[in-house]
Design a protein around this nucleic acid. Structure first.
Lengths: 226, 226
DNA sequence: CACAACTATTACAGTCCTATGACATTTCCG
DNA sequence: CGGAAATGTCATAGGACTGTAATAGTTGTG
């Protein structure tokens, strides 16, 4: 996530970073960044120091208070005070303006490389299923299951949004190639194979349910009673 | 350890850092630094780029080849080329001259804070394998093994996060150059060579396992039972 | 109830993935 | 320089996985 108030700089950095293969969400104020971060799961924040309203320092402190999300600061000059204070506020690194995209990219990759080991999500549990996205393993009642790559991606995709209905086309785009052009019945076959592995009774599925006419969903129908 | 050829700068930095509570060994050439490091167990190297004889880049590469000792570069100008190349050569951070002792100290502490986890690691044991990151040695059932540099880095990278799955590209970036552009089948070949050395039955690997469609993993599937 | 629309199940063949060993090239030594 | 070790590239084979299609079963509708 890029937090930078200068619109032209923000856009040019966003494009440059996207060209380097990063997925970027760009906002112009610290408040907006803090508001979005819980729902937009960023791996790293590029943070300008001089911001209208809440300063970069303040954003940095608040982010630090919440977790270990890596922070890369943008600072106007090689001002000693900024640098020291920034690093002490918890920034992982900083880049001095004017920013060269190549430098920023190298710094981002360096920070991500260092921060990576701890960035692992914990295993999730759904009923007696345990999903570990970090080790790509699935266990049922503690017993590891052997899933094929497609089965794994399918299960992880569905379980990322429990109760949400995915159309066959959405699943094809997420699990297979973006521009897959074949029969969408393929999803049925793979869901079936997945069910034979994770369901007690594949005919009465508990985890991967059919939503007739629409697609599939992970988990139970949400309870909507007040 | 401080590697800096300019005597007056070297001495002033040495005194300043000692005043900040660091124990400093200062030398004037890369060759001398590399010679001393095995016996003087530094926690971090502050390395000037412009050195007589072996350049800072070269020193950096050699240190990286041997281990994960944190490296902080001193560079004459904020030259993009130096910065990018330095970070790609494996430096953890850099400081631009003229150096302010307070900045240098803040950077040193930041790098040490990040690098901490693996710093003074005891030998680890996984099954009948013993990995010593400090001495870069591997033994199987007490018998030392002779691994090549690539095999060693590959094994250490994988074993740094047991059970986690590494993609071929991740391994290429971690073990080879960041921007290596060749065939990712290279990883397969090197994993194979590594297996012939550390596995009882390379066809039924215990330590370095294949995760079809994704990459490789060190160690067994984690136990998920409560 | 009969029909249409949709989904489950099964089997099979082609495709994709990895292991493996041979070979070429580079690097590292003395 | 010469030779050895290490590394990178390639071809092949075997096996696992996936895509397809055909059939059976299920659900909803008039």
């Amino acid at each position: 996530m890029l937090i930078e108030d200068d619109t032209s700089l923000r856009e040019s950095l966003r494009l440059a970073l996207r060209r380097q293969g990063h997925e970027v969400e760009a906002v112009s104020t610290g408040e907006e960044g803090l508001r979005l971060l819980p729902t937009w799961p960023a791996e790293l924040v590029v943070l300008d120091l001089m911001l209208p309203g809440m300063s970069g320092f303040e954003v940095c402190r608040r982010l630090r208070a919440e977790g270990s999300l890596p922070i890369l600061m943008l600072t106007a000059r090689g001002d000693d005070f900024d640098i020291v204070t920034g690093l002490e506020a918890g920034a992982d690194d900083y880049v001095v303006k004017p920013v060269r995209p190549r430098v920023l990219d190298a710094r981002i990759r360096a920070v991500l490389r260092r921060a990576e080991p701890s960035a692992g999500a914990e295993p999730e549990t759904h009923g007696d299923l345990t999903l570990d996205r970090l080790t790509l393993t699935v266990a049922k009642a503690g017993v590891p299951l052997v899933l094929t790559p497609v089965e794994l991606r399918l299960l992880f995709e569905l379980s990322a949004a429990p109760a949400r209905v995915f159309s066959r086309r959405q699943l094809l785009e997420a699990v297979w190639e973006e521009d897959y052009l074949g029969d969408s019945r393929l999803v049925d076959a793979c869901v079936h194979r997945l069910r034979t592995k994770i369901e007690e009774l594949p005919a009465k599925p508990v985890y991967v349910q059919t939503v007739r006419g629409f697609g599939y969903r992970f988990g139970p129908v949400p309870d909507m009673s007040p």
